[in-house]
Design a binder for these strands. Sequence first.
DNA 1: GGGTAAAACCTAAAGCCTTTAGGCAGAAGC
DNA 2: GCTTCTGCCTAAAGGCTTTAGGTTTTACCC
Lengths: 189, 189
Amino acid sequence: MARVGLTAERLTLAGAELADEVGFEHVTVSELARRFDVKVASLYSHVRNSHDLKTRIALFALEELADRAADAVAGRAGKDALAAFADAYRDYARQHPGRYDAARFRLDPQTAAAGAGVRHARMTRAILRGYDLAEPDQTHAVRMLGSVFHGYVSLEAAGGFSHTAVDPQVSWDWIIDSLDTLLRTLTTR
Amino acid sequence: MARVGLTAERLTLAGAELADEVGFEHVTVSELARRFDVKVASLYSHVRNSHDLKTRIALFALEELADRAADAVAGRAGKDALAAFADAYRDYARQHPGRYDAARFRLDPQTAAAGAGVRHARMTRAILRGYDLAEPDQTHAVRMLGSVFHGYVSLEAAGGFSHTAVDPQVSWDWIIDSLDTLLRTLTTR
DNA sequence: GGGTAAAACCTAAAGCCTTTAGGCAGAAGC
DNA sequence: GCTTCTGCCTAAAGGCTTTAGGTTTTACCC
């Protein structure tokens, strides 16, 4: 029987692609097996179970997203960095809705700590260097930025902004602008 | 055979409670049948299918959340109203994580339009009356508030804020404070 | 109070997904 | 060339969803 060459990595990547096509919640071991033209049981040598597969996809997406964000902010500072960082998130979510969803998959604390979540937090803090905030304001600001970006992106993905004629891109820019203003206000407080 | 007295409403409510216990994604027709000590097939007279059940739970949660928010903002204005509104969301999400998740269930546009989503949007706009914003700023601000609240609440629920020692309540208050400041700045622009 | 018809719940069965156990055949190493 | 390991397979059990068609209960009406 021809061997397909399954590995956890290939399964993870294929799972990520599948997620973008059919939605993360519909990613299934069976469907993945079908795509590789292989029997379902065969996947269980590479992946512990369905949850494990989803965890891998989540970690993969987090890593990929962190890479993108890191690229985006490299060589920028202040509002420039803020906007680039924010856009990296939103662009990723729009190009890869399934993966973005995967990145929100609830990981157990251990797994999460070992994953790229830490990079995300560190990058957000790095963005704030341009605004010179002291603790605990910095932590508050990190949380606020994370909330706005994630909230906006997920509401937009859920179709929450399609009732109004106002262009989501314009709102997005407006929000980034506002956040920048706000953060600069805090600096001088 | 003793009749239990199933109705779509009772199933919906039980489903909401189940969601709070085991998580919305684990709400299942089978489990609900088990709770009512009834055969699975019996539920299908009251609910079209699993998706229909989830939709009903989602609509129920949206309605309940809108009720709470409406109560919270009644008789308040300005920052008071903003804070009460925000707290209503966060409190609901913390008391009823499963229902809050349900409220984020992706509804088809028709269903969503008929549901309480509209009330939420209208209330958010009402909050902004205290800040006297012209269009399109008002829409931008509505989107920003929705994003921050939803984003914060869902990141908090996902355990995203447990890595730092800073009290989430303090960050929350700080964020509301900041948003109030920001909105007041916009008014006078 | 008895008849009837709708409503509520049941049995049966098919289809799909997950997961485990054990088997065979290529691939890799000696 | 032989052994061993690995990759994929067959088989099977268990769970959830959904449909079809039966039976009992309830409620209404005469």
